[in-house]
């Protein structure tokens, strides 16, 4: 299970990386915005994407749309972990095809629950 973590704040990437490691996911990579994440996703055989929304350069929502528009990547499960908390934004992310949405600040338990739920669905769809 290879996971890409995208956030412009290294602190948040590190927190997510540590929480994922705690959940047994040790194979992670990091990117600081959508434009550096997209080529990594296209070349890197990732199984899961965790992304922030608000980033300089390419935002998380644009990354989400780009992934869904890419034939090779369109089925990649995506969890959004963001401080963006407007209803319109959550609806936009849902319509763009996000698999889960976690608002910051979050707890380890919430992150775990959402990730497990996403994989349950992915497995059920297989």
């Amino acid at each position: 299970m290879k996971i890409l973590i995208v956030d412009d704040f290294s602190t948040m990437r590190r927190i997510i990386k540590n929480l994922l490691r705690d959940l047994g996911f040790v194979n992670t990579a990091e990117a600081d915005d959508g434009s550096s994440a997209l080529p990594m996703l296209q070349n890197g055989n990732f199984d899961f994407l965790v992304t922030d929304w608000n980033m300089p350069g390419m935002t998380g929502i644009d990354l989400l749309k780009a992934v869904r528009a890419d034939d090779k990547l369109k089925n990649l499960p995506i969890l959004m972990v963001t401080a963006e908390a407007k209803r319109d934004q959550i609806i936009e992310a849902a319509q763009a095809g996000v698999n889960g949405y976690v608002v910051k600040p979050f707890t380890a338990a919430v992150l775990k629950e959402k990730i497990e739920k996403i994989f349950e669905r992915v497995d059920a769809a297989k």
Binding site: A83, E84, A85, R87, D88, Q89, I90, V102, V103, V110
Partner: peptide, 26 residues
């Protein structure tokens, strides 16, 4: 839809969710 960052007074706004439970419900 523009990124706004953390909501300082989420409880006082109706267009903003007040926590993960609201997100899940929505």
């Amino acid at each position: 839809v523009v990124a706004e960052g953390p909501q300082i007074k989420a409880g006082e706004r109706t267009d903003v969710v007040s926590g993960q439970d609201d997100v899940d419900e929505l």
